[in-house]
Design a protein around this nucleic acid. Sequence first.
DNA 1: ACAAAAGTGTTAGGCCTACACCCATGA
DNA 2: TCATGGGTGTAGGCCTAACACTTTTGT
Lengths: 225, 225
Amino acid sequence: MYQYKYPHPAVTTDCVIFGFDGVRIKVLLIERGEEPYKGKWAFPGGFMRIDESAEEGALRELEEETGLKTASVQQLKAYTAVDRDPRERVITIAFYALVKLSDVRGGDDAASAKWFSLDEIPSLAFDHEQILRFALSRLKEQLHFEPIGFELLPEVFTMPELQNLYESILEVKFDRRNFAKKILQLELLYQADPNQKRTTRVPILYRFNPQKYQELKQKGFRLEF
Amino acid sequence: MYQYKYPHPAVTTDCVIFGFDGVRIKVLLIERGEEPYKGKWAFPGGFMRIDESAEEGALRELEEETGLKTASVQQLKAYTAVDRDPRERVITIAFYALVKLSDVRGGDDAASAKWFSLDEIPSLAFDHEQILRFALSRLKEQLHFEPIGFELLPEVFTMPELQNLYESILEVKFDRRNFAKKILQLELLYQADPNQKRTTRVPILYRFNPQKYQELKQKGFRLEF
DNA sequence: ACAAAAGTGTTAGGCCTACACCCATGA
DNA sequence: TCATGGGTGTAGGCCTAACACTTTTGT
């Protein structure tokens, strides 16, 4: 038993994990096996330990519940509504991360973890729908200024895939020619196979150049759409 | 005494309050009267109560410590490093708000609350220097996309004052003519006194048009600098 | 053979930037 | 009277957006 002079809330973490399947943005959810909200879907997460930071707790819970080893999560914000958990006063600190779907394909330890497209999201536990809306708005913002597409795509990808990603997240349509021009003039991509047979029916395969990205980021570049 | 099966951290809130004196950005700090960090300066804030949200707690503490009644604060993020408070495990949720200096001039209950320019910030308690850096970066971001200048300026202000505000926050210099053009073409300002004698030596007084602002915000406008 | 997918280049317009002059006031 | 501060307009360049045709492959 732990005693305090004043009441303390419990603290949990929740992770909104985004992936991309080449056409649509996906979100990783867990089916809850315990009350409250048993049987409902929720973000992976759980109670923060007293000897770890919220970020450490988020990474730990993520791996425990989904088998996913991600190097980093970014904090969204804390959710602190008094009645957000029926058990006791619980505040949660929400995080998000972008992962390649291929990184998860094999190591799916948790049978109850599943990827959902945005248009098939079930009703969520707690205030997780609110958290999801916030995470999506953050995702859009970030996409405007950073080439985060490369965290979501496989090593090798095509221009139409990259465009799908942008259109899917931002919910807009772009002109193919202008899109390719804008991306290519950043010189952030290089052809994966320079000897690839150049026909117009089969898309060019690209890789992301992380070194160039670091350079650009330091100069404080903007990628506007 | 309050008992829990597992250890719970304490939760505090901290408010980064920005103001503008016509020339420089100012930050509101409190001199700590108690250990830890007694005598050091810190953001207004304190322990969140078990029956209030973090935002409610932040607003309450802000008023208690500075007499400032602000309608809203925006959350920055939670700070959760294990050793950030020497007393016990304490996580803090940081907020920020923009206020008109004139709103505070009278009601300064707390003798120990003081405005500091960014170049005279003393050494701060806890991890508050880190919080300040984050708040400043958020302030810059927000200024790029929203006309937040109007929350910091008095009801009636001049174009050079507004430009000072932008230059002070973004740490850049603008061409007077281009700046005025860009702002005026948004049609977000109107002349405070249409009969004001039009000489060029005394600056035109403007007011902010909140209605126009709502319109623009819904259209998802961008104010780029 | 036809439809679908992907590559490519040009032009016009708008926005941003750079820049100069005038006037009024206070020292 | 001179220096300072503030108001105003224009021209050039760059970036963005709009847009059409060709090739190939799968059906």
